[in-house]
Nucleic acid binder design. Structure first.
Length: 200
DNA sequence: AGGGTGATTAGG
DNA sequence: CTAATCACCCTC
C-alpha cells in the first residue's frame, strides 16, 4: 500500500535513510516488493562505494539529488538497484538487497523460474529480476516511474544491523540493515579474503 | 566449492 | 590497448 509519495526524507544522511527504507514498497511492471534488507553506501568517503573514486559515467546519478535509481551490472550477469540519497554532491545511495513480494506474485514467479516464493526477491539481483528492473531504469525518478518507491508511513519495528555483504573494502562498517526474523533476508558468505591465511 | 559472465576502470 | 576487479547466483 502506498505511503507518502513525498520522498524528501531521502535527502538526509544515508545512515539515517537506509533503515527508514525497510518496510517501504518498490513497484514496477506488475510486481510490488516490501523491502526487508538494505545497505548504505556513503559515497566518496566510503571505500566500498562505487563513488569512492569520484564521479564517472556509470555512477553519475549518485552525485545528483535523492530519489533517483542507480542500477548497475555486476559480474557480467546481474543487475542491482540503489536509491540515491543525500544532497547533490554527496553521492550516497542505498542498495536494495532483499524484499518480500506482496503484489503480483504470479508475475514474479514467471520471472524467477524454479525459485521458491521466499527466494523471489531474496538477494539484490534476484530482487531486480523479480521486479524486472534493468540497466535502462538507471537514472529514473522514483516519484514519477516507471519504478516507484513508497515509504512506509510508520515505524516498522526493530531493525538489525551488521556488516555489508560481499565487500572487501570497508567490510567492517556495519551498514547493512534488515528486519529481524524476516524469512526473505538474504544470507551470503562474507567476501573471500584476498589470500588464504596460513593454516591454523 | 567452483564457475559463469561482461561492463567498468585505471594504467601503459 | 591490456588486465584487474566486481555491492552475485546457480549448481555441483
Amino acid at each position: 500500500m502506498p505511503g507518502s509519495p513525498d520522498l524528501s526524507v531521502l535527502a538526509g544522511d544515508v545512515l539515517d535513510v537506509a533503515p527508514r527504507l525497510l518496510g517501504a514498497h518498490v513497484s514496477h511492471a506488475g510486481v510490488t516488493v516490501r523491502l526487508t534488507e538494505v545497505e548504505a553506501y556513503a559515497g566518496e568517503s566510503d571505500p566500498g562505494s562505487h563513488a569512492f573514486r569520484g564521479p564517472t559515467e556509470r555512477n553519475a546519478v549518485m552525485f545528483g539529488p535523492a530519489g533517483f535509481l542507480y542500477s548497475y551490472l555486476i559480474y557480467g550477469m546481474h543487475v542491482c538497484a540503489n536509491v540515491v540519497t543525500g544532497t547533490p554532491g554527496t553521492a550516497s545511495a542505498v542498495l536494495l538487497r532483499a524484499g518480500e513480494v506482496v503484489e503480483g506474485i504470479d508475475v514474479a514467479r514467471g520471472r524467477r523460474p524454479g525459485a521458491t516464493d521466499r527466494d523471489l526477491a531474496r538477494g539484490p539481483a534476484r530482487l531486480c529480476r523479480a521486479l524486472a528492473i534493468g540497466l535502462d531504469h538507471g537514472g529514473a525518478d522514483l516519484t514519477i516511474g516507471p519504478v516507484r518507491l513508497y515509504l512506509a508511513p510508520d515505524r516498522v519495528g526493530p531493525v538489525a544491523t551488521g556488516p555489508r555483504v560481499g565487500l572487501r573494502q570497508a567490510a567492517e562498517r556495519p551498514w547493512r540493515y534488515w528486519l529481524p526474523g524476516e524469512p526473505t533476508v538474504s544470507v551470503y558468505r562474507p567476501a573471500a579474503p584476498l589470500r588464504r591465511r596460513p593454516r591454523g
